[in-house]
């Protein structure tokens, strides 16, 4: 087993455990714990990105998710300051069982269906600059200029929308 493989396993297990901690009730009863587990998961994910030479995206991942989005989550959680009574007990119903079954089935089918296709995929040789800020920036302003500009409009409208929705209503 190569060193890269070992590193991948560590990162993958960390990411999955973090995600599980968010989702599974015993750990995620308190949303603050869930948020912290999510940060852990995302940082492991960022490591996976580095392994895939996506340096710039990895940095963005840490900055945006671990920094901005998580801060937002934590702020809201503290703003709402949910009491244990307000934090509802898990509730089971037939359609939740159906959902879990479906999700697992989808995951299983996709995974098993793809593995023997993906075996034939071999990593391409890439330049040293692959995935650094300069190359991603070049792609953004050359190939995806419209999408890039559009995402800025999206963010702006999200800001305005969030302010409008969360604002205190008079009357």
């Amino acid at each position: 087993m190569s060193a890269e493989m070992i590193v991948f396993w560590i990162l993958a297990i960390g990411a999955v455990l973090g995600a599980l901690a968010v989702v599974l009730p015993p750990f995620g009863r308190n949303p603050l714990h869930g948020a912290l587990a999510l940060v852990v998961s995302f940082i492991f994910m960022a490591g996976v990105y580095v392994q895939l030479s996506a340096f710039f995206v990895a940095v963005i991942q840490v900055l945006v998710y671990a920094g901005a989005v998580m801060t937002l989550f934590v702020f809201v959680i503290m703003l709402l300051n949910l009491t244990p009574e307000e934090l509802a007990q898990p509730k089971y119903s037939w359609y939740k069982v159906l959902s879990v079954f479906s999700a697992l089935a989808i995951g299983f089918i996709v995974a098993s269906g793809l593995t023997h296709v993906l075996v034939h995929f071999h990593a391409a040789s890439i330049p040293a600059t692959f995935g650094n800020a300069a190359s991603v920036g070049g792609v953004l302003v050359k190939k995806w200029l419209f999408v890039f500009e559009f995402s800025s409009i999206l963010l702006l409208s999200a800001i305005v929308g969030a302010v409008l929705i969360a604002r205190k209503r008079r009357s």
Partner: peptide, 29 residues
């Protein structure tokens, strides 16, 4: 992107992150 040697997908990832951030902002509001 890594296996095909095409950095173009990183741009899309960037946009997905932006969408996710926007969605979180609105969703939390």
């Amino acid at each position: 992107a890594r296996f095909r040697g095409d950095v173009g997908a990183h741009g899309i990832v960037f946009v997905v992150i932006a969408v996710a951030a926007a969605e979180v902002a609105v969703g939390l509001a």
